[in-house]
Design a protein around this nucleic acid. Structure first.
Lengths: 348, 348
DNA sequence: GTGAAAGCGCTAACAA
DNA sequence: TTGTTAGCGCTTTCAC
């Protein structure tokens, strides 16, 4: 611990420099209109006293905190296991830092924590929030809305249909899925299966929708539900193989499940891509490049998503109360959809 | 974004409840000495108005924030890749939450960010800091000390020799290493090699010291430097095999490197544990249980370390200025060392 | 038990 | 250009 040296105040600096508090404030905040001679005196006093502005006092009057909360409604274990978040966070961090904003990471490990997060946001600690991983029935959005904190969501919120002004950033999950399935079809595959993610997440639902866009009248038995984990992918693949032994392609809703599916296919003696072509989603390099064979997948620019979320939030913050997105004023729910690209490797 | 509804103040609640601000404050903060009837009226007013205290105003007077910063001086990528941090963070999070404190995660990606972190801490946003992953030459401790923020370090700081009042929590790296090497010796091994971590981290240095405690006059060629990564472990193992083909045991300074060493040993046709016994350090389950053969290793209770760090910090915070650790007042550098245990699996 | 009043350290009109 | 002044919303003596 450290000695609790009473930190010098603006007042003290002013006294030492022989000026008024207002002048010191101007210098400290880089406002124009202070004669250089005085400014120098002030800066020296600041230096000598080791003055650092009291943020609480400042925030009390400016109502700004230059801090943004990132809320991840997901148990920590998953957050840290998933390179997805790491990348997204990096994008966010870079953008925030560039605008001199602090990133405050709020972890929640279960529902009990949501109230705490709600209180934190409502307490006016931060200027805005970036919120991830909402499931359909999540109470957090409600809490946040009530807290009145400007928010940008990561991924299309499931309930965006109902409510009004929702800003979010998402990948083109549906379009990407369509590309993946079309690619398989172009390869001449006709029995194309789909392993979905948990359908209470819009990303999973949208990818399924993309699959259906192309495979409008496919055998329903070809669609099986997964959970975005490798184990889930294995399980789903086994089920698929049992029900539809004649399948010749699989589109998995993410790379992790595709990796699981690949293992099961091999164990069952199916060659990839000769017998069964496989496409994933995410282009999570640590997975997609390591599988045997390397995975053809749909790439999304995750870091850019993060950066964009931060930019959108900051930009809305600047524009005062409303008008967050660059869209026309009074425009409806504004989502920004980032494009995806199919990355061809060897699995399809 | 959301409409900027002017949040109700204490004043407003007081007016609505027909009492003074002081009374509302008392009720809101759970202070005793308010007649139940009044308290009920106040609570109702709070409810109706959706009142939430303005933390900036509160902090301005109380000088408390009920928030603790966790500073990880490590590129984000590593933080999120390493289950070590996840566990530690979980421990910290649990303890902080239990005491109604917020965890503010400060990520740094390179030296440029250190100044920003320093400013943040000095700005009085948090009551204290938990700091990790310091390398020997890190400038952060200096910044933090100057910021005058109570701090607990994760892992023994390299410079603790010089400065005074440093509180830290660490595993018994040296003792654990001794146990590991003694175990190998007890198995009858005599040519016991050691793959170290980066020696500018005290954990690595301490483990090396433990190895030397037991192998005082071992062939220096048996010690080779690694970097805590699997690749580093492989590289080190190859070097070892080339220099000392007669080695019959390896103690790696962490599980990741042990896993790499195991791969190389297998590639070279050495059987584990028959020809070469291998021991790791950490007991990182996702690694140690997955290796072939399963890894004998030194376990440290990482989550407990995190919890303890938080407890120490909070406890110091309560005790006002000084006396952080439970040690006698005026006691020197207080480090808390957690015990380790050897976990026997099949590799040794 | 309850209220009145004095700040916490800062910014932002407004005056000078 | 610089200083004066009035708060920001809250806690906390100190009277009542």
């Amino acid at each position: 611990m450290t000695d609790i040296a009473p930190r010098p105040t603006l007042e003290a600096v002013a006294a030492r420099a022989g000026v008024s508090r207002a002048t010191v404030s101007r210098v400290v905040n880089g406002a124009a209109g202070v004669r250089e001679a005085l400014a120098a005196r002030v800066r020296r006093a600041v230096e000598e006293l080791g003055y650092v502005p009291n943020q609480a006092a400042r925030s009390l009057v400016t109502r700004r905190h230059d801090a943004v909360a990132v809320v991840v409604a997901e148990p920590e274990a998953r957050v840290f296991a998933d390179p997805f978040f790491a990348l997204q966070l990096r994008g966010i961090g870079k953008e925030l830092t560039a605008h001199d904003n602090q990133l405050v990471l709020l972890l929640t490990e279960g529902r009990e924590d949501h109230a705490r997060v709600g209180r934190y946001l409502a307490g006016g600690h931060v200027d805005g929030a970036l919120v991830f991983s909402l499931h359909l029935d999540d109470p957090l959005p409600g809490l946040i809305q009530r807290a009145g904190v400007p928010t940008v969501f990561g991924g299309r919120p499931g309930w965006s249909d109902g409510r009004g002004d929702v800003v979010y950033v998402d990948s083109d999950n549906r379009g990407g899925a369509r590309d993946a399935v079309r690619h398989l079809a172009a390869l001449g595959r006709t029995r194309i299966a789909h392993i979905t993610g948990p359908l209470d997440q819009t990303s999973a639902a949208d990818r399924l929708a993309g699959y259906r866009d192309v495979m409008a009248d496919a055998d329903p038995a070809l669609v099986v539900r997964g959970d975005f984990t490798p184990g889930g992918g294995e399980h789903a693949m086994r089920g698929l193989l049992a029900r539809c032994p004649d399948l010749d392609a699989v589109f998995a809703a993410n790379d992790l499940m595709a990796a699981g599916a690949l293992r099961v296919l091999r164990a069952h003696g199916r060659r990839v891509p000769e017998d069964v072509a496989v496409v994933g989603f995410d282009d999570m390099l640590s997975v997609a490049e390591q599988t045997e064979p390397a995975l053809t997948t749909v790439r999304q620019d995750i870091e850019e998503m993060g950066r964009l979320m931060a930019r959108l939030l900051l930009c809305g913050l600047d524009g005062e109360a409303g008008a967050p997105a660059p869209g026309p004023p009074g425009s409806a729910p504004s989502g920004v959809i980032l494009p995806t690209t199919l990355i061809r490797r060897t699995s399809a």
